[in-house]
Design a protein around this nucleic acid. Structure first.
Lengths: 331, 331
DNA sequence: TTGTATGCGTTATCAG
DNA sequence: CTGATAACGCATACAA
């Protein structure tokens, strides 16, 4: 079933069919138009995607690289991407890099091969300069997450520094003085900002802040869980988990050891995944607008694709403190 | 940067370049080979994906339709798909149908347009016959989930009937007699099997089973949460949630009303998402091998793509009871 | 109002 | 060992 078959069946030329099917057929008799359209339906003709793109020089595709699909934050992020893509007649191709550098590179190459029109990279383990070198060489616009200080390309961001400050302020205002942070081994820019923000508040109140206060562990439920013994050893009254997933793990670890949240130790998260509202006690956290971040990122990227010489774009989205039940006052 | 540019730069013909780059260049002098390879690297030549596929008649792409990306079961399912795809040099294009029929149809068409070589459809709201009509017409092999009784195409499945039986047996053995089921409004085949299996055990023990025992609510955390008032009204001693997400919602609802799991009411789930092991109390559930299901589905599909006249394939994966702490014995 | 001819970038065929 | 040429299916400039 090619355009030629359809043209033959309709008794017209391929040009006629092509034009009509692409909405440029005003000039043909409505009779011809109807006939072609009807025959297309009947024969189930679908233009060959590759042939079409070969001429059009566009795949209407954007590539998306996330570190972990199973993290609800990224699920929402992706849902935002899908919605915005759909609105703009683009299709996202999503890859879960699985926190694996080699895999990430492979996917990156694959996306280039497939001539993705643009990329959203929310995977932290690649070096920003590498990415830039590879992508600009191929003329592919892209948008980087977790690497906020890279001056390259457009930018969608939340003020993680402020996020860290909000967390610290809240915990201090609740009377906590002995604090611990749960952070990943591989500290990306956005995480660093959170920590720095947190530190700035501590410093402001002339409280000590040191490496000692941080426990390094993977940003997963399991990671949080595994950090609990260290956490207890620190005898803190509150812990700030750099994402909610970790906090869920901490909940479990504390509970298994007979400790209660927030009575024995207060827990604060970051992200505000939907689960945060379903655990007991409900998790106090900082809300990141994951869905909107995906949406806006996609919109910016597509604008850039459609107009490469647009001025640099920068969009900040708001963070928000969500007070629930996992932090106790005046310990 | 086309193959022609590269050929020119290397002082050879496009044929030479093409052959060498496609691993069919044994017959060329190793000098020529080296030169071409080196120049490709240097100039960063990447074969045009569309032109290539136009000739090769393959996109090395499979389409994937899931109802909800944010459900951990599907996250794992997708991770399985990605791994198996990667092993076979295929790329999955993933769509979250968002439990929306229209969206689903749109994505289905999009995947056909993009000449996906095969499809994995784990979205329940489409009619199996519609799908079959559309896809067989386009000669696209596919694999359906949640529609186990459809005799069409290959099949990867778990014995949901048995799953339902396992759940019922476990609850009955624990001494529960007053039971409630949380089920979705739109009951797909696999869900129906679970219910039937559950029913079969009740019947075997001459216990009543009726519509009255079922509460219809969305298969989400929120859905479970919203069903709690009805659940309490039924004065059951145990509830079987048709997936774990619902169970999480039930936990919260019960807790907010001062009821305790499992002391006041026992809760059982289905899926065994990783979260099940992190809630308090840990959720007793039926383990579905989501990751393997994705993997196996992908493998079967790709085999089918590569050999369309293969005999019908059928692969069953095991279910497993996972006993944790959310069901109390001898109430 | 319709059709012809050309080219997109690649691979495959076959002749040197 | 190498290269000229056809073909893939489509859209479009140009002709009629």
């Amino acid at each position: 079933m090619t355009i030629r078959d359809l043209a033959e069946a309709a008794g017209v030329s391929v040009t006629t069919v092509s034009q009509i099917l692409n909405g440029k057929g005003e000039r043909f008799s409505s009779d011809t138009q109807a006939r072609v359209l009807k025959l297309q339906e009947k024969l189930g003709y679908v233009p060959d995607y590759n042939a079409r793109n070969l001429i059009m020089r566009s795949t209407q595709t954007i590539g998306v690289l996330v570190p972990n699909l199973a993290n609800p934050f990224f699920s929402m992020f992706i849902k935002g991407i899908q919605l915005a893509s759909q609105d703009n007649k683009f299709i996202p191709i999503i890859f879960d890099a699985n926190q694996n550098q080699a895999l990430q590179n492979m996917y990156l190459e694959e996306l280039i091969k497939r001539a993705a029109n643009g990329l959203i990279i929310a995977s932290a383990t690649l070096d920003a300069n590498d990415i830039d070198r590879i992508l600009t060489r191929n003329g592919i616009p892209y948008l980087l997450f977790d690497q906020n200080d890279a001056q390259i390309g457009d930018r969608v961001w939340v003020d993680d520094y402020k996020g860290g400050q909000i967390a610290a302020n809240y915990l201090l205002a609740a009377g906590h003085r002995k604090l611990t942070l749960l952070v990943p081994d591989d500290i990306t820019q956005n995480i660093r900002q959170r920590i720095k923000g947190f530190e700035s508040v501590m410093t402001k109140y002339r409280l000590a802040f040191s490496e000692e206060m941080m426990i390094k562990t993977p940003m997963t439920k399991l990671g949080g869980y595994q950090a609990v013994d260290q956490l207890i050893a620190k005898q803190s009254t509150a812990v700030f988990c750099i994402n909610d997933e970790m906090a869920i793990g901490v909940y479990r670890g504390l509970q298994e050891r007979g400790l209660r949240v927030p009575d024995d130790i207060s827990v604060m998260g970051y992200d505000d995944i939907d689960l945060a509202n379903f655990v007991a006690p409900k998790l106090t956290t900082i809300h990141q607008p994951a869905f909107e971040m995906g949406q806006v990122a996609t919109e910016l990227l597509i604008e850039r694709i459609q107009n490469p010489r647009l001025p640099h774009q920068d969009k900040q989205l708001p963070l928000e403190l969500v007070v629930r039940d996992s932090v106790k006052s005046n310990p």
